[in-house]
């Protein structure tokens, strides 16, 4: 049997979930014995060059580029996993969801202490090359269908490892309560 192919990406996340993925220490070597990695920041492959079995997504959608990447993942991966709070609920970035976008942008580019005296023309950057910011953060399951969710901020390394192993080997996972208990 050929190795399953995995792709990963970080949308509006902090890369913490990816760090947690690496936190499985030497099991990383086992993981890569089991899978082949396609598009991912870990190997810097920028574009899908094969159909993948599993796509792992960190972070929600904050801008149009996130949306395009996510849809691209859905198209190219059979199974999509939302990894971590940001992907599942919007997470920390979603704190801005109750504030109007205009106010957020003005705070970021015009009114805050570092820009106050340095942006006299009150410019809010915009260019066809920069992604357009969405009106709020969208959890990824509002944009495309997601098959599995791994909770946590970040999810514990062991939880990621157990889930991936189960998905790859097809064996049932037995996740100990402590691994998904957060309070």
């Amino acid at each position: 049997m050929s190795k399953p192919i995995v792709a990963t990406t970080s949308l509006a996340g902090c890369f913490g979930c990816h760090m947690s993925l690496l936190d499985i220490d030497e099991k990383v070597l086992d993981l890569f014995k089991l899978v082949e990695l396609n598009k991912s920041p870990l190997n810097d492959i920028k574009k899908f060059n094969k159909k993948c079995d599993v796509g792992i997504i960190e972070g929600g959608c904050a801008n149009d580029e996130n949306v395009h990447v996510l849809k691209d993942f859905r198209k190219n991966c059979n199974t999509l996993i939302a990894l971590g709070s940001c992907a599942i609920t919007g997470g920390l970035p979603a704190l801005r969801n109750n504030i109007k976008l205009k106010e957020c942008m003005e705070e970021a580019y015009i009114n805050n202490i570092t820009t106050k005296d340095n942006n006299k023309e009150e410019i809010i950057p915009c260019d066809k090359d920069i992604p357009k910011i969405l009106d709020r953060i969208y959890p990824i399951n509002e944009v495309v269908k997601i098959d599995y969710y791994i909770p946590g901020c970040p999810p514990r390394a062991k939880l990621i490892w157990l889930t991936l192993r189960a998905l790859i080997t097809g064996e049932e996972v037995d996740i100990p309560y402590e691994v998904i208990k957060y309070d």
């Binding site: 149009d64 949306v67 976008l101 915009c126 009106d135 495309v144």
Partner: peptide
């Protein structure tokens, strides 16, 4: 159906277009 997305990119970027 199992899944229908309500997401609409044009609507989601409308505020941004207006601001900029």
């Amino acid at each position: 159906k199992e899944y229908i997305s309500e997401f609409n990119l044009e609507k989601a970027t409308a505020d941004y277009e207006k601001i900029t």
